[in-house]
C-alpha cells in the first residue's frame, strides 16, 4: 500500500509545505489550465464529443433519405428540417437532453476525483501545493467546461450538417416570427448556454459521487442513474410537489430561448435551482474530500 496523505485543512496543507510556485493565484489558474489540457487532450473526451456530434448527423441523414415528416409528428422541430437545415441543431439538442448529455457529463464528472484515485495520481496532485479545495474547484470547473462544450458540439455539428444537406434560411421561432441565420446561430449558442447551466447541478452531483469511491465507473454510472431517476420522477403527476426541486425539471425549458421576445423566466429559475444543487453537493463533496484519507 502506498503511503497515505492524511486529511488536512487546506490552510494547514499550504502552510505545512513550501510552495514551489510563488503566486498561489497563478498556481490555481495553471492547475485549471493543465486540468483542461488533460481533459480535452484525452481520447475519451473526444470520443464522447464525437458521439454527441454524431446525433445531429444521424438525424440529418435519416431525414434526408426518408420521406418528409408530417407536421406535428416526432420530436419538436423534426418536421422543419427539410425546409431549413438549422433545425437539425435544435432537434439534436432536444433529442440529446434526456440521456446523451447526462451520460457524457456523468462520465466526465464521475471521473473527476475517482479517476485520479483509480490511477493512483490523486496523492501526487495533493502533494503539490494545490490543496484539496482548490483541486476540487479545478476538477469541477473542468466538468463545467465539458458541460458547455458538449451542447455546443451538438449544436454546431447540427448546424453544419444541416447546412450541408438542406437549404438554410430564416428560422421560424416558436412565436411565429422569423430571424435571419446569424441571429439563429446566436439562439443556438444561447440554448447551449442554457443546457450548460442545466448540467451544472448534475456535474456537482457527479463530483460528490466521485469523492465517495475509487472506482470511476461506479461514480459515472451512479450519476447517470441519478439523472434518469430525476427525469422519471418529473413525469409522475402524483409527485407534483417535488417537481420544482428536481434538477432535471427545467431541462426541456430551453424552448424559451426560441420565443420572441426571449423569455428568461425559466433560465433564471433554472440557474437558481442549479446553484442550489451546486451549493449542496459542492458542500457534501467538500466535506467528504477534505476529511478523507487519500490512500491512492
Amino acid at each position: 500500500m502506498p503511503s497515505s496523505v492524511p486529511a488536512d485543512t487546506p490552510d494547514a496543507d499550504a502552510a505545512a509545505r513550501p510552495a514551489p510556485v510563488p503566486a498561489p493565484r497563478s498556481s490555481g489558474l495553471s492547475l485549471l489550465g493543465s486540468e483542461l489540457k488533460v481533459l480535452f487532450g484525452r481520447r475519451r473526451t473526444w470520443a464522447l464529443l464525437l458521439a454527441l456530434a454524431a446525433i445531429p448527423v444521424l438525424i440529418a441523414i435519416a431525414v434526408r433519405v426518408s420521406s418528409p415528416v408530417p407536421p406535428g409528428r416526432g420530436p419538436a422541430f423534426l418536421d422543419r428540417i427539410t425546409q431549413n437545415g438549422l433545425f437539425v441543431a435544435f432537434t439534436a439538442m432536444l433529442v440529446s437532453v434526456p440521456l446523451f448529455m447526462p451520460l457524457a457529463v456523468g462520465v466526465v464528472a464521475g471521473d473527476t476525483i475517482a479517476g485520479e484515485a483509480n490511477l493512483g495520481t490523486l496523492r501526487y496532485l495533493l502533494v503539490a501545493p494545490a490543496g484539496r479545495v482548490r483541486l476540487l474547484l479545478v476538477k469541477y470547473a473542468g466538468a463545467l467546461a465539458f458541460g458547455l462544450v458538449a451542447p455546443l458540439a451538438v449544436g454546431l455539428a447540427g448546424a453544419a450538417i444541416g447546412a450541408a444537406l438542406f437549404p438554410v434560411g430564416p428560422v421560424t421561432l416558436l412565436s411565429g416570427g422569423v430571424v435571419q441565420p446569424p441571429e439563429a446561430a446566436l439562439r443556438i449558442v444561447l440554448i447551449a448556454a442554457y443546457l450548460a447551466v442545466s448540467l451544472a447541478g448534475l456535474s456537482a452531483i457527479g463530483l460528490f459521487l466521485s469523492t465517495l469511491t475509487v472506482v470511476p465507473v461506479g461514480a459515472m454510472a451512479a450519476t447517470v442513474v441519478v439523472s434518469v431517476v430525476s427525469q422519471v420522477l418529473d413525469q409522475l403527476p402524483q409527485l407534483e410537489w417535488l417537481h420544482p426541486w428536481l434538477f432535471s425539471h427545467y431541462w426541456l425549458g430551453f424552448g424559451d430561448m426560441l420565443r420572441q421576445p426571449l423569455l428568461w423566466d425559466s433560465f433564471a429559475s433554472n440557474a437558481l435551482l442549479q446553484a442550489g444543487y451546486i451549493v449542496v453537493f459542492g458542500a457534501l463533496a467538500y466535506g467528504r474530500f477534505v476529511s478523507k484519507d487519500i490512500l491512492s
Partner: peptide, 21 residues
C-alpha cells in the same frame, strides 16, 4: 417547446400554433 399565439392588429386577427406550424 411550443407556443400558441393570437395576434390582433387593426382589423386582422392571426392565430399561430408552433406545434404544427
Amino acid at each position: 417547446l411550443a407556443e400558441r399565439d393570437v395576434i390582433h392588429h387593426g382589423n386582422d386577427v392571426w392565430f399561430y400554433s408552433s406545434k404544427d406550424n
